[in-house]
Amino acid sequence: MSISRRKFLGWIGAAGAGSAIGSTALAGGNKHFTGYPGSYAVLHDTVLCVGCRLCEASCNKVNELPAPDKPFTDLEVLNKKRRTTAKTYTVVNKYESAGKKGPLFRKIQCNHCLEPACASACFVRAFSKTAVGAVTYDSTVCVGCRYCMVACPFEIPAYEYDEPLTPRVMKCTMCYPRITKGQLPGCVEACPKEALTYGKREDLLKIARARIRKYPDRYVDHVYGESEMGGTSWLYLSGVPFSEIGMREDLGITPAPDLTSGALAVVPMVVGLWPVLLTGIYAISKRKEKIAEQELNEAVKHAANEVKEKAEAKLAEALAKAHTEKDAAVEKAVKKALEEAAKSQAKEDS
């Protein structure tokens, strides 16, 4: 089983998403929500289930859902794998197992998670985990984005795809209106085999463990829903590995909200740090620009100066040269004059 790998992934998720941006993720934390104390739940003992579909019929009736295509007494329906739909909150499926002779049955409906993925995913908080245990849905705020359906690991919520303007998300309510009045959920009330037991979650866990202890060869030593996805308010017992009755064993025990809390924790960091960093970068690039401009100006000035200096130097040189040339000319003239004078003197002397 890859539970440990999933768990590991979860930790990494928390650490990774956090450390990647450099903030401490709140994910995981050290507090673990184990459900409202005294909340109610249902234990589904699949070993006792006979696939009579009375629970389906009762659910349909108490929730005033549309009549099914085939009557609930038609057990042929069980030969096809079904899931919950907008018109059916619960379905019973039939499974074959190599280890058991005769078919196995399992009832499917919303598991009423302790920390529901659907509720954590909904951006208008249309779902609430009520203190009595039921996860309820409020269609008066629902936008119909269907992210709750994407998020649910048990593939439960369904959608009224044929409603053009007022589609709702549909799922089992754990008969919230009934249980708050002290009545049993419709399905539990209808079950002739005590395959469904309604009660306080803590008590049901004890009952489930007691059954496993009493009949170790009849049950797999695991109560499904005790810790899957952080725990659910619908608990299951089985005589064969749960994967053989269509239940995923690789979901891990990380509650859905913990999967995203790391990413959410990063948000304030981005909002706080980014503007500061970006303004800094802007300032630096601006300053660079300014320095570049200054340097350019200076260079231009420098170049201009150089040109001027050079010109002056040239002028000076030219002047100097002119000077020396002039001097030389004077000297030459003087020399010549002297020579001439000397010559004429010599002539006179001779």
């Binding site: 909904c122 208008v124 629902c142 007022t166 990413a263």
Partner: peptide, 27 residues
Amino acid sequence: YDVGRPWRLPYPFIMQSGTTSLLFEVG
């Protein structure tokens, strides 16, 4: 086209905010 009741798209900001949802952040 995709959401069920498009006129409710502002709901997360004016009616009820699901701040635990990444979709809220996206929106």
